[in-house]
């Protein structure tokens, strides 16, 4: 059976996700709703950004950010199963090439990342904002989710403990959420911030996903190339790390 290891790992994650699906759904519904209220209706009511209504600008940003949080969130789970429950040993003991672990966990991260997408699609319906959910959007979303699932996987492999994980989140994930163009265009920021934003992958995926969703906007194929390159690089790095990882 091809990819039996990746499929076994994915199945394990799905069996566990199934048991906490409602909790995950509710948890990923709250924060985008609050951001939507605070920024969309509070600060930005009636404003225009880059020629579109602020809500049309904000909703794709929120979608990208929330789905990043979910797919990157596998880091915490892998961490717990590695250091606390030690289930990860089961994957390392099995007769499978180690890159299959990466594939299985990345697919899980992608699946998790789809949950907030459904929620925000629902919110945009409620808000009466029509977005362009088409094949280009799906392709961009897939790249985006795979990138952040891989980042989560890499983070979980390189940390030595659970508290290291919190440090990574504080220094990488939170700044990324606020500086990558979720709430306002990166071009409005001072130059040093723009320089920082330009190294965050979220900046690129936000830009691309927003373009694919916004009616009438032009989609840059260079950005597809950039994201594919980031994805390939991360997969390569993950492979190097997982080949050397011990228990």
């Amino acid at each position: 059976m091809i990819l039996h290891g990746a499929r076994a790992i994915y199945l394990r994650e799905m069996l566990i996700l199934r048991r906490k699906l409602i909790k995950t759904l509710l948890a990923s519904a709250v924060s985008p709703a609050l951001f939507l209220l605070a920024f969309g209706y509070g600060v930005g009511r009636g404003a225009q950004v880059g020629g579109v209504d602020y809500l049309v600008f904000l909703l794709p940003g929120l979608l990208t950010m929330s789905s990043m949080n979910q797919s990157y969130g596998i880091a915490t789970e892998i961490n717990i199963s590695r250091f606390y429950f030690k289930i990860f040993e089961e994957f390392l003991l099995a007769p499978l090439q180690r890159w299959q672990i990466i594939v299985g966990e990345t697919c899980y991260g992608i699946t998790r990342g789809l949950i907030p997408v459904l929620i925000i699609a629902f919110y945009s319906l409620l808000a009466g904002v029509s977005l362009r959910f088409g094949p280009l959007f799906l392709l961009a979303l897939l790249l985006h989710l795979a990138i952040f699932a891989l980042l989560g996987f890499i983070a979980a492999m390189i940390v030595k403990s659970h508290s290291d994980q919190a440090t990574i989140n504080a220094f990488l994930i939170t700044p990324m959420m606020f500086l990558s163009g979720t709430f306002f265009p990166v071009e409005q920021m001072p130059l040093p911030i723009r320089a920082v934003a330009s190294i965050f992958p979220l900046t690129y995926s936000t830009q691309l996903i927003r373009a694919t969703l916004t009616p009438g906007a032009e989609v840059s194929f260079t950005l597809f190339g950039v994201l594919t390159l980031i994805l390939a690089t991360l997969f390569f790095i993950a492979r190097q790390i997982v080949a050397r990882v011990e228990i």
Partner: peptide
């Protein structure tokens, strides 16, 4: 090789049968 680690590393949310199922799949059983 079969391994029983010092620490009982079971998936606590999964049933006894599911724990075995995942192990079997990891070892290419079907």
């Amino acid at each position: 090789i079969g391994v029983v680690p010092q620490h009982n590393n079971l998936d606590r949310e999964l049933t006894a049968a599911e724990n075995l199922l995942i192990h079997g799949r990891l070892f290419g059983m079907w």
